[in-house]
């Protein structure tokens, strides 16, 4: 990896059933991730993906790019909710990445995570052992 390298964009589909499965695997049963009734009652447009689900997809992309390199740091803000409709198609999450810095055995990757062209994570970044 060399600074400036653009990493191959990764694309993932997220459906309601994925959110239910993630709820079980993570222990996050917040009903805003499975109930439209509750989600809209707190002012959300509808059921949204767990922010940590989207972040897990970003981490998956990093694993693909780095052949599973050890992650030293990972972080982001959750700037826009990923609304996941109750249909068979779900939504598409695109993860892009650029190598920012490689030094002292650490590579820093700036990520761009979008849904329908809109950024959903703020300043997502990973640092991996290089």
């Amino acid at each position: 990896m060399t600074p400036g390298d653009a990493l191959e964009p990764q694309r993932y589909v997220v459906r309601r059933a994925d959110l239910v499965r993630y709820a079980g695997a993570s222990g996050d049963f917040n009903p805003i991730h499975w109930s439209d009734r509750v989600a809209t009652s707190v002012g959300l447009p509808g059921v949204i993906a767990h922010g940590m689900f989207t972040m897990a997809l970003a981490a998956r992309a990093v694993g693909t790019w780095t052949d599973g390199a050890e992650v030293l740091e990972l972080g982001c803000k959750f700037t826009n909710p990923v609304v996941v409709p109750d249909d068979d198609d779900g939504v598409v999450i695109d993860v892009g990445g650029t190598v920012k810095d490689v030094a002292d055995g650490r590579a820093t990757i700036a990520l761009e995570v979008t849904c329908a062209g809109q950024k959903v994570l703020g300043m997502p970044k990973a640092v991996v052992r290089a």
Binding site: G27, I32, M52, L72, E73, G75, C76, F78
Partner: peptide
């Protein structure tokens, strides 16, 4: 971390459904 957060919310009587995640950072 979620388990710890749930215990925290419960102890403070904060409803989980009113919580939205703003930011998360890990350092390993």
């Amino acid at each position: 971390a979620f388990d710890a957060m749930n215990a925290f919310l419960e102890s403070e009587s904060i409803d989980l459904f009113r919580i939205v995640h703003g930011e998360q950072r890990f350092s390993y």
